[in-house]
Amino acid sequence: MRVPRLAVNALGVGLALAGWQIAGSGLGDALVATPVQVAAALVDTIRDGSLWPALWSMGWQMMVGYLAAMAVGVPLGVAMGRSDVVLSVVKPWAQMFIVVSAAAIVPLFIILMGRGVLFCTSIVFVATVWYVVATMTEAARGVSPKLLNVARSFAASDFQRFRYVILPALHPFVLIAARIGLVHALRAMITAEMFISAGFGGLLNNAGLDLSTAPLFGLIVILMALSVGATSLLRWAAHRSAPWYASRTNA
């Protein structure tokens, strides 16, 4: 008999929540708040006025850094994938930056830029752009030489091969890079805000100092919901705009 997937998912979540509730009851809410306590704290946090402005300021500053990272990362990654010269110039930097965590460069950026908008957007940009670059480089290197040959056999010019073969072949990967980049942008933004005790990261910081872990868990749940929501939205957009790719990978 086939069990519906949704039911299995729900069962898994239910079991985890039950285990969490039992553990929380044993350890006390200073260490592990129970789901029931977290739900109550979540309602309080949402009612409290400070959440929405914090989310807003986090959201727009992150988006500025993220969109800049996409705007620079996609063309740069494509150039690296299609040109050996660009690849050999940029790759060492990309490799260096991609292994450095955002937290490690935050102190330097605070010294350089202070604690304002420029700082937050710059951290997001630096932490995101190389993941976008790496994704697009691989995608651009993977463009089928056979299909480029087909275009050539129809006498397509360099520009036409770019326009009719490389660009459409890369389209689904732009959306994949957008998804990967968004996750890194959000992480970097939270890290930056925790350092300067501002916005949503600031709330997380303060909640960590609380006697109960319930509000902290509540904020983490909000963060997870945001991240999952945003990446799902991007995945949906990818399926809508490149159905040939989506249905091929789902097959």
Binding site: K146, L147, V150, A151, A155, V165, P168, Y245
Partner: peptide
């Protein structure tokens, strides 16, 4: 020089996966 007067059929068809059948035919 490619093009001009020649049409090529490739071994694995090598259609553009992002183009519908009719758009593939119209490519040239």
């Amino acid at each position: 020089k490619s093009g001009s007067g020649r049409g090529m059929v490739f071994q694995g068809a090598d259609l553009f996966p992002w183009r519908s059948a009719i758009e593939n035919v119209a490519f040239g």
